[in-house]
Design a protein around this nucleic acid. Structure first.
Lengths: 330, 330
DNA sequence: CTGAAAGCGCTTACAG
DNA sequence: CTGAAAGCGCTTACAG
């Protein structure tokens, strides 16, 4: 049997109340008693039961984190940061990989409620999850969920602009955009709007191809990329809405015989540490993942500590990582 | 206030006992009563409190997962699989990123105990964590932890052999091995032993360089790689103990003017979906990540359901992914 | 088929 | 400075 507070009390020759007080450093306790209690805890290898504590305190220090999949490097890094920051602040993370399935998200949401999490950080592209009254504090990353849920994101519009302008400025004549699943309401939508706007302002005709990805965004339909090159062999600039897509496009283009950046320039999106380390040549838009994670956790904890009514919305600027895929090889 | 079982009981006009019975589908209850109870739960938007349940049942359906960092694609994928499989089986995952720090691991281990997890799946390269009596069911991935803890891994020795032989068979004269941190007791050690054995059997002199990595294995000291090429400009085969290392080596080699695979052949290790998708050209050893995850979860749950005394040790075979970095360009 | 009571391990007013 | 008692939300023998 796991030792409980009562066992410690017996060994230390005090009451359970006193043990609890020592544990929580609450009220006045003589140094001697404290020592006795600590010794007793040590002796029987006692560890408090957080379930029982949480039950009484109505505070679990548990935070639910819902992402599509940690298998995708963007979410893998995001979750690693979120967890580390939570740990620093005394919170624990209950991890949920939704795989973009709306019903999984729904089930996870309820699971988190049952487990009395203090709050939730969620990356979801399915609306309408948060029906009814707001259940508990939540922060959405990169997506508007409801009028009660805070959102923290990086500036997707700015990112789209930066990427599009980079291609314009490096002399591309025919710039095409590749985006993810058109049915998903992702932050990438704003990247597309920005692209369209920049194109129009420059007197160009925007054109976007949509690629269907799997849940982890790991594989993506190469068919669409093929189609792009068949329909527009004269393309000389591509803005892909994420780095994996950009790299796949790059590979396919080289396979077709295009030289990058001479014949074709490419800009990706996300700029995770991993991709920057593996493909330092790829020009991309860097999202400040750590800042997003940090702000999401901070905002959530603030909300947990004192529920306020005003929804917060924070947006962090992105930056351009200039690699050789848009470099002018002279 | 969150509704509790008592509130449901009042609305339904029955006792809390009955509500609990309906909830757990236990004992005989008339259809009518059931309906009334369900209706009441629906009406007040009731969700059971799993903390209270777990407290009573001494079963939390919580599993702790400790990995270095989900930011590393290998662990990101592993964790994604583990979590999905756990979810399927009704378990929830408490995520811990140890960042390879022994004292963080220790703290996490205690945190998991406090939270009454039913078991733990751990990837750690620090020994001596599991002192005292075994606290609860645990499965270690890729590493022997104690005589009570199951271990599941892929065949690292076989992987090292496959990689080394591949280089031998593709005609390399001078084959060097790059491994991770020499101070960490990782599964990569066995890859190195296999390399050394194969080299000796072929009458070669094995030579291994050690690279110091950061916690997430994302960055690694390029200095060591530089040194390798300075000391052995005639190297024509490199076996790197993970893919990220392999890719960095590849990049550095190309930067130095080596042509891969003509002048230099490279084999990596891990073969995550991500890397295979991003660098399909890289010859690598594929670890069966899904199988490892699946077996780890299964073994753990089995252990939770009926603690047995015999430690299980399972090893899955790896396979060679033949890319162009060892291809013979003719 | 259904209810009252005790208990899971902890904490916190309330006394002393 | 310390203890006895009630309660967090649930479940399960035990009665009926």
């Amino acid at each position: 049997m796991k030792p409980k507070i009562e066992d410690v009390a017996k060994v230390a020759g005090v009451s359970p109340t006193t043990v609890s007080r020592v544990l929580n450093d609450r009220g006045y306790i003589s140094g001697k008693t404290k020592d006795k209690v600590y010794a007793a805890m040590e002796e029987i290898n006692y560890v408090p039961n957080d379930l029982a504590r949480s039950l009484y305190n109505k505070r679990s220090y548990l935070i639910g984190v819902i992402v599509p999949s940690t298998g995708n490097p963007f979410f893998g890094e995001l979750v690693a940061y979120i967890e580390s920051i939570c740990d620093e602040k005394g919170y624990k993370v209950l991890l949920c990989n939704s795989l973009h399935e709306a019903d999984k998200e729904k089930k996870y949401w309820e699971m988190l409620r049952r487990n009395q999490v203090d709050g939730v950080i969620v990356v979801t592209y399915n609306r309408g999850l948060v029906d009814k009254e707001q259940q508990f504090p939540a922060v959405a990353i990169d997506h508007y969920l409801s009028e009660h849920i805070h959102v923290v994101s990086s500036d997707n519009f700015q990112g789209g602009e930066l990427a599009s302008r980079e291609l314009l400025e490096t002399g591309c004549k025919k710039i095409i955009h590749i985006n993810g699943d058109a049915n998903l309401e992702t932050p990438a939508n704003n990247r597309q709007y920005a692209y369209e706007r920049v194109m129009k302002e420059a007197g160009r005709t925007p054109e976007t191809y949509h690629v269907v990805s799997d849940a982890a965004f790991l594989e993506s339909n190469i068919g669409t990329i093929q189609q792009l090159f068949e329909e527009h062999p004269d393309v000389d600039g591509i803005f892909a809405s994420d780095d994996l897509l950009a790299i796949r496009t790059l590979q396919y283009a080289e396979h077709l015989g295009y030289k990058v950046p001479e014949d074709l320039k490419i800009v990706g999106y996300d700029g995770t540490s991993l991709i920057r380390s593996l493909y330092p040549n790829l020009t991309t838009i860097i999202q400040p993942i750590y800042q997003i994670a940090d702000d999401a956790v901070q905002t959530l904890i603030q909300e947990i500590d004192n529920t306020s009514d005003d929804r917060k919305e924070k947006t962090f600027p992105v930056s351009l990582w200039k690699g050789e895929t848009t470099g002018s090889f002279t």
